[in-house]
Design a protein around this nucleic acid. Sequence first.
RNA 1: GCUGACGUAGCUCAGUCGGUAGAGCACCUGCAUGGUAAGCAGGAGGUCUCGGGUUCAAAUCCCGACGUCAGCUCCA
Length: 637
Amino acid sequence: MHVSVDGKLVALEAGATYADLARAAGVPDALAARQGGQIYELFRPVAAEGEAELLRFFDADGAMVFHHTSTHMMAQAVRRLYPDAKFAIGPADAEGFFYDMDLSHQLGPDDFPAIEEEMRRIAAADYAVSREVLPRREAEALFAELGESLKLEILARLPEDAEISIYRQGEFVDLCRGPHLSRTGLVQAAKVLSVAGAYFAGDESRPMLQRLYGTSFPTKEGLEEHLRLLEEAKRRDHRRLGRELDLFTFHDVAPGFAFWQPAGTAIYRELEGFSREVQARYGYREVMTPWIFRPDLWQTSGHWGHYRENMFVVESEDETVALKPMNCPGHCLLFQETVRSYRDLPLRIAEYGPLSRFERSGTLHGLLRVRGFHQDDAHIFLREDQIGSGIEEVLEILRVIYGTFGLQYRVELSTRPEEYLGERALWDRAEGELAAALDRAGLPFRINEGDGAFYGPKIDVHVIDALGRQWQCATVQLDFQFPLRFGLEYRDQEGKAQTPVMVHRAIFGSIERFLGILLEHFAGAFPSWLAPQQARVLPVADRHLEYAQSVASELRALSLRAEADTRDEKLGYKIRSAAADKVPYLLVVGDREAEEGSVSVRARGETKSTALPRAAFAGRLAEEVRARRLELGAHAE
RNA sequence: GCUGACGUAGCUCAGUCGGUAGAGCACCUGCAUGGUAAGCAGGAGGUCUCGGGUUCAAAUCCCGACGUCAGCUCCA
C-alpha cells in the first residue's frame, strides 16, 4: 500500500503500522499520526491508503498526545504512592495536562517532587503503551475490580454505541479514548505544577476532587524554556505591576474595589478621554444617571428576576434599593423623559458612571474581576431600518480604538440563553442582524451557543495580548426587549408611535479590566500617551535643580506629565530608578544643557541619548502624545 | 460560594524544638556635588490580618472570622 506524507509517497507492506510509516518517511521524532481527521498511535496499523500526517511535539496535536500520556504517567505515579487514589478524567492540551482524582491524602507542593521522581522511574522503565477495545460489560468488570468508582460513572455516561477503549502501560490501566504515545520513555521532563479543587463533571453539588496540574516535554531544555515563560507571565501580572508602579491597590476592607493612586488614575483618565474623543466624533452624547434605584425599575427591566443575585441590595429608610449593575434601565428612563422624533434617531447615549456587581468572593481577581467598576458604556436607540448601519458603526469604532493599542481581536456571536425574555422569533431576527453586520464588516466569528444576555444576543470581542492570551472586553448587544418593557416610543413621519430598537455596547468593556489587560500586554511599559509620567528630568548635580524644574514645568504647561527627580542622588541612581518606573523619556540636564537650553534625551529601553533643544523635544513629545503613537520616537533625529 | 494553600516592616521574604522579631530594597538624616542602571555611614519603621482557646510562655499549636492566591462554578 502507498501513503503520502508531506507530499512524499511511501510504499508500505500490508499490515504496516504508523511507526513503520514514520521510519520509512524518515521522521524519527513522530509521536502519532493523523489520517482522515483522526489521530492514531504509532503502534496502530495504517488505516488507509492516501495522505497521512506525522505529528511531532511542535504540532499542537502532537504535544497534546504527548501530554495525554504524561497525565497517565502522573496518575500511575500517584497510584503507586497513594494506593487508595481513584481517578476521574485526565485531559491534555498543547500546554500541559491535569488529572482529577479522589484520594484520602491531601496533595500539596511538598508532594510534587516525589510524584515527579516516580514519573521519572516510569519514563526510565520505558513501558510500551497498549490499547484494547472492550465490550462494555468487561470494562465495567475491570474497573469495578480495580475499585475505580469514578471511572465506572464515566463509563455509565458514555453513549450506548461508544467504542470503549482502555490503555495500559506497565501495571497501570486507564479508561481512555486516547490517542497516546507508544512508549513512556519519550517523556523525559515532567513537572507537577499545582493542585486545586474541581468538581466531578463540573457539578457543584458533588464533593470536590483534587485536580493535579502538570506539564511535560521531550527534553529538559524544553521544560526549562516553558518554566521561563511562566515566570514571564508572572512578571507581567497586572496585580504585581500595579503595586510596583504605584498604580492601584486593594484593601481588606473593600474586597473587589480598587484604590487608584495618582499614577493609575492618570492612565485611567487617558483611556476615558480617548473614548470620549472617539465617540464624540461619531455623534455620541454623554450623560450621567443615578446609581441607586428603587426595585420598581429593576422589576421593569427584568433585572430583579434575572440578575438580582449579582446586585448589591441596600436598606434605606425602611425601603429596599439597589445599586446599578448596568446603565441600560437608567438610559431607557432618560429616553422616555422627552418626546422623541424619528429625526432624533439613532440617539447615542454614553455614560462612564460607577457600576456595582456582586461577585462571589472566590471569583475576584485583581482588576480583571472586581465588584466596582466603570464601563465605556453607551446605548443606541435606533429605528429598525438603522440596525445594520448602527452595528457596523460600532464595529468601526471598535477597529479604531483597538487599533490604537495595536491589539488583535477575535469575535464571537453569543445566542439565546436558557433563561431569556421575549419571543423566539425576535431573538432569531436579532441574531440574524448581528451575524449579517459581522459578515458585512468582514469579521469572521464563532457562534457561542446560549451565551447571550437575558434580553438579547450579543457580539463578544476577545482581545489577544502580547503573550497570546485572550480576554473578553467589548460587547455589542442587540435588544428588542427593553424598549417594549419600558414602553419606549418615537414618532414616525406620520406622527404615529413606533418602538425603537436598542443596542447596548461597550468597547473597553470595563475600563478597570481593560487597563489591567493593557498593563500585562505592555508589561507596564506604556506608550507615551498612556504613561503616568511621560518624561522625567534628571539633574546631574544640585546646581542644575532650577533648570530641571523649569524644563519640567514647561512640559507641564503643554499638558504633558513631567516631573524633575530632585532627590539628592547620583545620576546613575536616578536612571536606574526611572527605568524601574518605566518612564518613556529621561531628560538629563547638566552644565552643558543648562548653558545651551537643551535636554539630553534617553528613551526607555535605550542606552544612548540624543541632545535636543528643549522646545524641540517638548513639541515632538506633545505631538506623539496627541497622535497616541504606540512607539517612542520623540527623541529620534 | 466550594476545595486547598497562604497572611511577619511600604515591598520581597527569613524566623529551627513554643521562650516577647530579622535581612534586602524603599523611606528619613548626615557626608559626598556627582554625566547615563544601585556612592558611604547612620536612623526610624511591627497589635506578626483579626477574635477566641491551649500553655508558666504563642508569630509559632488548636478553633473561628476576614483577606489573598491557585482552581472549580459563575462572568465585564
